[in-house]
Design a protein around this nucleic acid. Structure first.
Lengths: 337, 337
DNA sequence: CTGAAAGCGCTTACAG
DNA sequence: CTGAAAGCGCTTACAG
């Protein structure tokens, strides 16, 4: 049986109230008592029962994160940063995956609220168009942090990657290398990250006075490597000229490379390729892949910082200043360009 | 404010006790009352307060999993299976990473116990030699499930991969392909998985009457791809003859392939290569990698099944039959062999 | 079949 | 500075 306040009170000849006050650092306690209690607590490794505390304080010391997938290099690095930072602050993290489904995402939010987590971190799913379930989080007086795929209309703190700028840098790199006919394998038409990366590509072309040709842009809806492969095939079959490729993800880039390799189109001489994400494997492929590094771990850490800030302000009924943190990304040049 | 039992009782003109009994499916309730209450509960989406329930029942509906890393293909697929199965059963999963450190692992176990999780899933860290913290879980009357890197001396349910058999199959494949001088890049001398895979390699050689030569075995202590690269280099420099390579992981295999590619040693003609894990990327490399597929997701699902079984038995004070489930793995043949 | 009451382990407004 | 008492939202032994 774990130690309870009652046990400590009995052992020290004090009241439960006094012990609780010492532990919660109330000011109206004599130094002698304080010392005595803290010593006993330390010696006997007393830990408050979190569920019992919750019943009075409404703080569960739990946070939840909803990811599209629990097995995805970038999201897992976000998770790492979040969990490490949470641990430092005595919080635990509950993980869930939405599989990019709106219905599942909605259900998971409900379940997290039912568990009385103090905060929820979420990157909205591909399918999500209705955001009532996210507003519900705030109505329940819990702290909501959006990251990566965010929804601008929601008033909360956010952490994002500057996708447009990163895509600009990637495209700029190809241009500086001498490429003039740069393909872009983009994502679907709706996701913000897909739009932003496309805009970064376009604005780099514009900045360097290279004409934009919509025929060089291909859509990869699902994000698997076969789409990269098939679009590369299409490019060749349609006789489109090219000397560079900026792909929305490493996976798409690798799919395209697979096709180029097959057709003996030499990389980077005939086509220079840049991916996006710095997936662990991108330094292991043949050729190794030039890519944009997104510091997911840093993102996860910042997310928890913002949660703590918001949670504390909320607790003290202070006005909350919502912030949007933009995480910088950087180009890693390897053999594919 | 969420609905409470009291609110329902007032609304229906019944007592809190009766409402609670209906919700917890007690038998001594009239059909009429039961129907009335359940209807109201459904209509108004009543959800019991989990922390309050815990205070009486000692069931938190939380489980925790400690992984060496939160960003590792195999462990993340285990996590996926575990989380999905947990959700189906109305449990939430708390994730933590030990970074292969004994001290951290011990601390994390303490924190999970302090949070009163119902069960803990753990694959022990590389460093762990003392298992008191695991026994502590059982002393606290919580359900412990070991997986992957297990400790045989602990009496609990376990889920493992049959590493020896999988390594046998991998090596056998090389032999059947005609290889006679098969290298093995193994892991450290201590981890059970490293030992088991080595033993599988040896027993396949023995079974097919190929002499075992210790000079063909190299140790990769940390598991990063550079070790594969450097050991491949060593093989060449030391003038050791070879026509096949069985590596303890895909990453090690890819490191070796990187060196072979550099030296224009053709794969699979001059050396056939087999990895281990079926890491997502192994079908994207050049050449694509033959490997052993470990069904991590299935492993995660089984782990939760075993937890539920053990937890229920424990709750009903029944005798627990600890089980060890062995997950079969299979060979995936690709272009590297 | 129904319900009043005690209690799980805490926190906190209040009295002294 | 200390502590008695109420109460957070539930469950359950017990009485009727």
């Amino acid at each position: 049986m774990p130690l309870k306040l009652k046990d400590i009170a009995k052992a020290l000849g004090l009241s439960v109230t006094t012990i609780s006050k010492v532990i919660n650092n109330y000011p109206d306690i004599s130094q002698t008592t304080k010392k005595k209690v803290l010593e006993y607590v330390k010696q006997n490794k007393y830990k408050p029962n979190l569920q019992a505390s919750f019943l009075r304080t409404n703080e569960s010391k739990l946070v939840g994160i909803i990811l599209p997938s629990l097995n995805h290099y970038f999201f897992n690095s976000v998770l790492e940063g979040l969990v490490d930072n949470a641990m430092k602050n005595n919080y635990m993290v509950i993980v869930l995956q939405s599989n990019e489904k709106y219905k599942k995402e909605k259900k998971l939010v409900e379940q997290l609220l039912n568990l009385n987590v103090d905060g929820i971190f979420i990157t909205v799913s591909q399918e999500t168009r209705n955001f009532d379930h996210l507003f519900e989080i705030q109505k329940n007086n819990k702290t909501l942090i959006l990251f990566d795929k965010i929804e601008k209309s929601i008033n909360c703190s956010k952490v994002i990657i500057n996708d447009k700028q990163a895509a600009f840098i990637a495209t700029e790199h190809l241009i500086k290398r001498g490429c003039k006919k740069i393909l872009h394998f983009r994502g679907g038409l709706l996701p913000q990250i897909s739009i932003d990366r496309f805009l970064g590509y376009r604005s780099a072309l514009e900045h360097y006075k290279i004409p934009y040709d919509p025929k060089r842009v291909f859509i990869c809806e699902n994000g698997n490597d076969d789409e990269g492969y098939l679009n590369a095939k299409k490019v060749i079959e349609e006789g489109i000229e090219f000397d560079g490729l900026f792909a929305i993800s490493d996976l798409i880039a690798l799919g395209a490379i697979r096709y180029f390799n097959k057709k003996n189109i030499s990389i980077p001489d005939q086509v220079a390729v840049v991916g996006f994400s710095n997936w662990k494997v991108s330094k292991l492929t043949t050729p190794t892949l030039t890519t944009i590094n997104q510091p997911g771990k840093l993102m996860g850490e910042k997310m928890f910082d913002l949660f703590l800030k918001g949670f504390k302000a909320n607790k003290n009924k202070e006005k909350i200043n919502f912030e949007t943190i933009i995480i910088p990304s950087n180009l890693i040049v390897r053999n594919s360009s």
